[in-house]
Amino acid sequence: MKGSVIKYEQDNIDTDVILPGPYLKIHDYAELATHAMEGLDKDFHKRVKSGDFIVAGKNFGCGSSREHAPIALSYSGIRAVLALSFARIFYRNAVDGAFLLPIEIDDSAYKDISDSDSLEVDISKNEIKNLTKNKIYKIKPFPELIGKIIEAGGLFNYKP
């Protein structure tokens, strides 16, 4: 996966800013996507391109259980969120529907990656290549179950 970075240098990016409550009534995923990140960044939907990555701090996706949050990001074009850590319901929702990859990075990668950097993410090698800075970062391997759900392409395709 190759794409460029949209970086939010902050912790605790919650589901209410990823997809504000009033839009939970929307069932059309493309329309949902037009409101992604609206609580934090009104220009996100104008800026985001298919294949982009979000880079953020600790506890990304904290708050509500709304699967609308990873759905809105996914349908905006986001393929992976690279964060220092994730809230667990968001983490699980992201992979259950194969909406996006929640990838845990370490502090040095978080600090090193800049907004608009081009990255190549390879989960088979647990590696991120920063094509802009010509650097390689390690990513934290997925827990066993999560890795299997990702490999299967979502919870409903996963046949143990």
């Binding site: 259980s65 709304r66 699967e67 319901i89 699980r92 929702n93 259950d96 529907g97 979502g154 919870l155 409903f156």
Partner: peptide, 10 residues
């Protein structure tokens, strides 16, 4: 446990 919609379906 609080769960998302895919898990609700499951």
């Amino acid at each position: 446990f609080g769960i998302g919609t895919s898990d609700v379906e499951h």
